[in-house]
Amino acid sequence: MTILYLLIPVTLVMGAAGLGAFFWSLRAQQYDDLAGDAERILHDGRDEPLPPRKETAR
């Protein structure tokens, strides 16, 4: 039974890591243009995301 005291924290930490990764991807604007990303993979050449914020939208 004592193994539970190790395993439960481990599962919780792993879950929290996944949650953290999702939050990071959300903040890094990875869900902003799902249709565009699907096409970008087909292009050659360098393709970098914009520098974060500090943008003018037109």
Partner: peptide, 12 residues
């Protein structure tokens, strides 16, 4: 950078 979802271009 063009955003296909929003049909919008962002220019820096």
């Amino acid at each position: 950078r063009a955003n296909l979802t929003l049909c919008r271009i962002t220019v820096t």
